[in-house]
Structures are given as C-alpha cells and as structure tokens.
Amino acid sequence: MANLMAKGVSVHFGGVRALSDVNVEVPEGSIIGLIGPNGAGKTTFFNCLSRFLSCDKGTITYGDKDLRRCSPHNIVRLGIARTFQNINLFKTRTVLDNILIGMHRHIGNLVSATLSLPGALRHERSMRRRAEEIAELLGMKTEINEIVRNLPYGIQKRVEMGRALAAEPQLLLLDEPVAGCNEEETSELCKIVYSINHDQKITILLVEHDMSMVMSVCKYIYVLDFGKNIAEGTPAEIQSNPAVIEAYLGEQNAA
C-alpha cells in the first residue's frame, strides 16, 4: 500500500512560520481535500511534497520512501505528479507537446531518441497515441495542436492536468484545479477529477477554494489555517465544525 503520510511538517521563511506541525494522511485510492483560507499554507505544503521546498521538521513518506531524500525531478518517478495553481505550462508549445513533456518519465534510451532510431520513433508514436487519449479524456481533443498561449484559461487548466496525468502517476496533487473557472467549467472538471480517481484508480490530494467541488468530490478533508491543522473529517463534519466556520467567517468579518 502506497500511502502518503506527512507528519509534523514545519516550514518557516525567516521569522514567518508558514507551516507548523502539519499532519496529513492520504490513503491509496482516496480523494482527500485540503482547504483553508488564503495564506493558510496549502501551496507551501504542496511545495514540500514536490520538494521545491525543504521542510525544517517532520517526515513525509510515500509507501516506504522518504520524500525528503528525493530531488524534485525524482518525485515523479515515485509516481507522484502535481499541477500548479498559477498555471505553469510550456506556453509557446502545443497542447500535444505539453502532454509529451509530461511523459518524460518514460523517455527510454536517450541516444536512440536523439538519433531518431526506429525503436525511438515507434516509442514516440505510442507516446503520441497515449497523449491523444489523455487529451480526449480531458475533453480537449480538438485543441491538441493549438499553442497553449492562445487557449482560454479553462482549457489551460486542463492542459496542466493533462501534463501531470501523462506521467502516469499513482498519486496526483491538484493545486486549485478550478480556480478562476466559471461554473460550467467547474462542474466539468469535477466530473473529470472524479473519473480520474474512480476509473483510473489514481489517488488524489486536492487543494481547492471552491467548496462545492471539495464537498462533492472529497471523501475526507483536512483544514489548515495559519499553517496549522485546525480540523479534519468527512465533508458533513467539516461543514458543521465550529473552528472551520470561525476560520472562514472570521476572515469575512475582518474584511
């Protein structure tokens, strides 16, 4: 069983404590939500998981592997892929190229690829077929040869997801997949996220501000505020948890 376990994770930037003693567990096969008001440390936590940041204290393990010993480009080899909140794509390239770059994990023999030997060309064709399947799954088959920069925001969000899926991960970390999307796009992405988990058996950790999405998709939710765990439970438990209501409404009162 490859479960993701984060225990007592702490990070500080100078005097600011971004995360203190955060615990999150993601069992294989589940969809777990991670929510919290702005600045709660959700993205910081994601960056720790994908090794763009090192945590000062605590342990992060995936199965029997210690993630703190991995470099960022090795994370994906363990079967963990992520998306970025503020889209981080290869904007001057096509959707197809973006998905193909996501498949880098399956690059095969470097020399053979460089010299376009027959084996590499066959491998390239099979990668392209797989990329087309991913584009179809995400409902962007007609856009596959478009330059990413020219596509609407909602589609770019899907390309981001496509790039992550291309690595064929067992665990997918989604950082606000529907932020900035309209209602229609959101409900479509909800279905996609559900089908990725249900049909492809990919475990998902979802950071999201859109409560309707989190409540409908996730089975279990962790809530962060000011870099600390303040609650965890099923969607129903979270909705009635006084600490959560205070964190969110308190923020509203202050505004």
Binding site: P72, N74, V76, R77, A81, N88, L89, F90, D97
Partner: peptide, 14 residues
C-alpha cells in the same frame, strides 16, 4: 525547450 520555458514545470515532469 521545457527547461527554457518553465524550470518548475520541467522538474515536476521529471
């Protein structure tokens, strides 16, 4: 080209 366009995204693609 991935390294050129976005180091972060390139790294997270392995």
């Amino acid at each position: 080209t991935a390294v050129r366009d976005s180091e972060r995204a390139a790294e997270s693609s392995g």
